[in-house]
């Protein structure tokens, strides 16, 4: 048991170090950063903001991790967010119940995933091109649904998903925590995760050894579509309206970045959902930190890029070998260390 915990921590160590450094740095620049208080019956503070604002990217990163583990990529998630936000807003404003609205919206997300999955798994189109189709077309579909305007709604149930709270935590945080744990359990407590990794490492070899790859691939894109649907509902509920032009814009890139910061290779194979979630939280911590720092907005992207380069260097194999060699020379060569890698 302790060895599995240690393995797990070893895998997440670079991300945890990076997050700790960023949080320390922000709290030096801005002393009130770590303050937490109860306001309107929920925790209130910058740390909570990071978890709350990061919700869409965390959710997208969960689905993206599995897709990337199959050696794929899903560029359409931002557009699917826009579609699903538009669908939920138009359903709720046309008088459907909250349950109907949510179920139909999630189904639309799953449908988008099936579309991507069929293009990749059955028609054998390269994932970057296959998902580009929906990335480009999706925003148009969303605009058709909202008729080009921001579709606002006042349904308290739907708004609760964006800005309500449960057990003192904002709803979006509760949703991604539960969903993330659920997905991690399903892929890791069954053989699914291993099969996904096998497909990512060598699709042909997996097929030959009896893995039914098309279904597995489609399932990966369906998961990604579902994640995007949840993220889309949260984004729309947060501003009480569906903004087809801007909802989820460029978030597919942030999600891919979160997966990479989390240490999952774009070449497929081994993956860690927890690490990707940490990656997404790191990205949001950087964003929030920049906003609090009070730098002129022209610096935002430069600072973000510089910090991310630093994190990527931190986890590059060469740097890690050097780091391991210096810090714990005695541990080198032990079996746990090998597993941790």
């Amino acid at each position: 048991m302790t060895s599995t915990v240690r393995t797990y921590l070893g895998r997440l160590l670079p991300q945890l170090i990076a997050l700790a450094i960023i949080i320390t740095a922000i709290s030096i620049i801005f002393p009130g950063f770590l303050n937490l208080q109860i306001q309107n019956g929920r925790l209130y503070g910058s740390l909570i903001d990071i978890l709350n604002r990061g919700a869409p990217v965390v959710l997208l990163a969960i689905g993206m991790t599995v897709v990337i583990a199959t050696k794929g990529i899903d560029l359409s998630v931002g557009a699917v967010m826009a579609i699903c936000g538009a669908v939920s807003a138009s359903l709720i404003t046309s008088g459907h119940s909250l349950v109907e609205t949510l179920l139909v919206t999630l189904a639309v997300g799953i449908l988008c995933g099936v579309w991507n999955g069929i293009l990749v798994a059955v028609l054998d189109i390269q994932p970057i091109i296959a998902t580009l189709v929906l990335m480009v077309a999706g925003r148009g579909i969303a605009q058709l649904i909202t008729e080009g305007a921001i579709l606002t709604f006042i349904d308290p149930g739907l708004i609760f998903i964006g800005s309500g709270s449960f057990l003192g935590l904002p709803m979006p945080v509760v949703i991604w925590l539960i969903f993330g744990i659920l997905v991690a359990l399903v892929v890791r407590q069954t053989a699914l995760g291993m099969l996904v990794e096998a497909v990512g490492v060598n699709r042909e070899a997996s097929t030959l050894s009896g893995v039914f790859t098309p279904v597995l691939l489609i399932a990966a894109y369906v998961l990604s579509g579902l994640c995007a649907a949840i993220a889309g509902i949260i984004a729309a509920a947060d501003i009480k309206g569906a903004d087809a032009n801007n909802a989820g814009l460029w978030l597919e890139l942030d999600a891919i970045l979160a997966v990479v910061v989390g240490g999952t290779s774009l070449l497929g194979g081994r993956f860690s959902i927890a690490a990707s979630v940490l990656g997404a939280v790191i990205i949001q911590a950087i964003n929030t930190g920049i906003l609090l720092s009070g730098f002129p907005p022209e610096f935002n992207l430069i600072i973000k890029a510089a910090i991310i380069v630093f994190i990527l260097v931190l986890q590059s194999p060469r740097f890690r070998t050097a780091f391991t060699y210096v810090s714990m020379p005695r541990a080198a060569g032990k079996p746990t260390e090998r597993e941790a890698k």
Binding site: F30, D49, D243, N246, L292, P296
Partner: peptide, 23 residues
């Protein structure tokens, strides 16, 4: 006292305002 970009969108306007309020 503070000036940041909200990219003309509601989402970013809300997020940036949250940080202004904290700061």
């Amino acid at each position: 006292v503070r000036s940041q970009t909200g990219d003309f969108t509601r989402t970013k306007g809300k997020e940036v305002m949250e940080s202004f309020l904290k700061a």
